[in-house]
Structures are given as C-alpha cells and as structure tokens.
C-alpha cells in the first residue's frame, strides 16, 4: 500500500506560514518527515509546534506554502481532506474519546464508516488493537469509567484502527497524572519499534532521547534546530536550547 519507501519523505512542508491575528506563529517553515521515522518536536509553549502538527491534517489552515502528505496536497478540497485524514492519525492532549460510545465503538466507528469494514471484521480488529494497548478488558466500558492514561491508550488504538500512514501526537501525556505518563509512553515506544511513522509534540525529554530519530526544536515559529537526539541532548552548542533543556529537566 506504500507509495513511499522507508527513509524517503512521506510529508514535505515547504515555506509554510501561519498567522493568528497579528501573531506570526509559523515563519517560512520548511522540513520533511520520512516514512518509518519518529520525529520529536519540542520547544516552549506558543513556539508553533502544535500549530505545525495541526496544519499537517488541516485541523489548522496555513496561510501560504505547501504541505504534501503521501502525495496528497493539503488544501481546502474536501475529497483531498477526507482522503488525507484517513491516512493521518492524530492523538490529542485531551484524548477526545467519544463519551457516548463504548470503548469498542470508539475504535470501530471510523473503520466502519470510512473504510466500510464489516461490523464483525471491525470488531475483531478493534479487540486486537485494544489488546495491544492493554485495554481489551475494558472494551465494553464508556470513556468516563476509565483513567486518563487508559483513555489515551484507547485513543491511540482508535487512531491505529484506520491503519494510518503516520500518527501525529499532540502533547499526548501533558494532561495525565505523572503515574499514568509511563503507560502511555510505553505504548508509544512499542509503536515506534514496530516501524510506525510518528511525529510527536511533547515535553517528555526522556522519551525524545530514547525513541526519537530526530529532534526538531521550535523557537518563535521557526525550526531552530533539527538534529539526532545524541547530538541534540549530548552535545548542545546553542545557549538558548541549553537554557530550555535546563528548565525542562530540573
């Protein structure tokens, strides 16, 4: 199903600009994300990292520049958009599970509606995914009965059910109690090991260092540095980034 070989760009971002009123939140951002790669985006709040992530599946529009995901140009064309979003999964800070549906229905809804998967097949696939994230025993509960960490693991399974080419994570552990962060990060590590293409906005430096193939540091709407984790964390020359890392880690 892949038109893109591992290691070649799955997503290209060319000179993308975005304004929120007078604020220029993305300034001529140019980068690319490769298939099979785990890219971790870090930076201060308001630096534009979440905004970039959200422009990749058009939850946020960009004012200029081009974004191409797996050959699909990201624009206002509704056909492109539905096609794009079926290929790009997203995990949110606030989980955003559907509260009126059971865990199982949360996971099966999109495959049944979008991929037209038969009920039984969707159910079997969902249970397998829930098993993978350790939530199979909770398949018939409603989201309010679950802890934050459990909800986020279900949200990951829900995204995976669409068999996306790439998964976007928008601060997936920022709304969690500390003791639940690990269970979610463990699921994400396991995904990374399986070869999933992931773009992760996070403040979890341990995860970035251990799992990331690339670290992108955002500062005031620009990518200030794009480096492998060893160089980024081990031999950081930039005084601003050193200051930021000092803040985060202590």
């Amino acid at each position: 199903m892949s038109a893109v070989a591992p290691g070649s760009p799955l997503i290209t971002v060319q000179k993308v600009n975005k304004h929120f009123g007078p604020a220029h939140v993305l300034k001529d951002v140019t980068t690319h994300f490769n298939a099979g790669e785990v890219a971790v985006i870090i930076g201060a709040s308001g630096s534009g990292k979440s905004t970039l992530l959200r422009t990749l599946n058009r939850l946020e529009t960009h004012d200029s520049g081009t974004i191409i995901v797996d050959g699909i140009t990201v624009d206002d064309n509704h056909k492109h958009l539905d096609q794009l979003r079926a290929e790009v999964g997203m995990v949110f800070q606030q989980f955003n599970l559907f509260p009126h549906l059971t865990v199982l229905d949360n996971v099966t809804l999109a495959p049944r509606r979008v991929r037209k998967t038969a009920r039984e097949a969707a159910r079997a696939q969902a249970l397998e995914l829930l098993d993978r994230v350790g939530m199979k025993a909770h398949a018939h509960k409603h989201p309010f009965q679950l802890s934050g960490g459990q909800q986020q693991r279900v949200a990951i399974a829900r995204s995976l059910a669409m068999q996306p080419r790439v998964l976007l994570f928008d601060e997936p552990t920022s709304a969690l109690d500390p003791e639940m962060v690990k269970e979610v990060l463990d699921v994400m590590k396991q995904l990374a090991t399986s070869g999933m293409t992931m773009i992760v906005v996070t403040h979890e430096m341990g995860f970035a260092r251990e799992v990331g193939d690339r670290i992108l540091f955002f500062d005031k709407g620009c990518i200030a540095q794009d480096a492998p984790p060893d160089a980024f964390f081990g031999n950081q020359q930039d005084p601003r980034i050193r200051a930021f890392l000092g803040h985060i880690q202590h």
């Binding site: 999964g89 997203m90 949110f92 509606r113």
Partner: peptide
Amino acid sequence: KGQIEAARSLGLSRWYTFVDITFPQ
C-alpha cells in the same frame, strides 16, 4: 470542538461527524 476535531481527524465525513458524534451529544 475537540469532539469534532477527533471525528474529522479519523477521516469521518462532515455528514457522519454530525450523525454519529455531534447530534447524539
């Protein structure tokens, strides 16, 4: 709003987002 974003980001069309997510809630 997060509910609609979650539905759309799963690839659900605007119609299914309304019928399955927005309207029941």
